[in-house]
């Protein structure tokens, strides 16, 4: 049992930033991302015995878990919004830098205008530099679909940056 805990602690320490960055991109909100990161690692500890290193690396597995946690969060939020009959602001505030310290305001704004689906593929392939196959596994799609999604996301990002600069 001690070995398991040590193994998990090492993996958590090594990949905490990756999971957190992915969730920041996915949610577009730092506070929510922090909550979901903690929730993801709590789930990871529970399910660590299921982790099979032959099927995927720990980073890929943790990102899959993080995505699942985030989706649960989004569903719960959608239900809550429906129940309460009001909608939260869809645009993150401009006051703070969500997607990273030192990011240009144009890029920050452009990222905020992307959908979560577009941001997550950027996060996985560009920020975390995951291989195409690993990223596709996290997203539950084929490698080709992943490449297409990334290409479209980057094009849109460029477009948004251009629009931001022009403005």
């Amino acid at each position: 049992m001690d070995a398991v805990k040590t193994e998990f602690a090492e993996a958590a320490e090594r990949h905490l930033d990756d999971v957190h960055a992915y969730l920041v991109y996915l949610t577009g909100d730092r506070a929510t991302a922090e909550e979901l990161t903690a929730e993801t690692f709590a789930r990871a500890l529970e399910r660590w015995h299921r982790f099979d290193p032959r099927r995927a690396g720990p980073r890929t597995w943790l990102c899959q878990l993080a995505r699942s946690t985030a989706l649960d969060h989004f569903r719960a939020e959608a239900r809550r919004r429906r129940r309460e009959g009001r909608y939260a602001a869809t645009e993150p505030g401009d006051a703070q830098q969500v997607f990273g310290e030192g990011l240009s305001p144009e890029l920050e704004a452009a990222l905020a205008r992307l959908s979560a689906a577009e941001r997550e593929v950027v996060a996985l392939r560009v920020v975390l530099e995951l291989e195409g196959e690993a990223a596709a596994r996290v997203l539950g799609i084929s490698t080709t679909a992943c490449s297409t999604r990334l290409s479209r996301a980057l094009q849109k990002l460029e477009k948004e940056v251009s629009a931001g600069v022009a403005a």
Partner: peptide, 16 residues
Amino acid sequence: IAQELRASRPVASAAL
């Protein structure tokens, strides 16, 4: 863009 995104990637806080 990619270079900038990587350079300024979010980092987990000490509390997290």
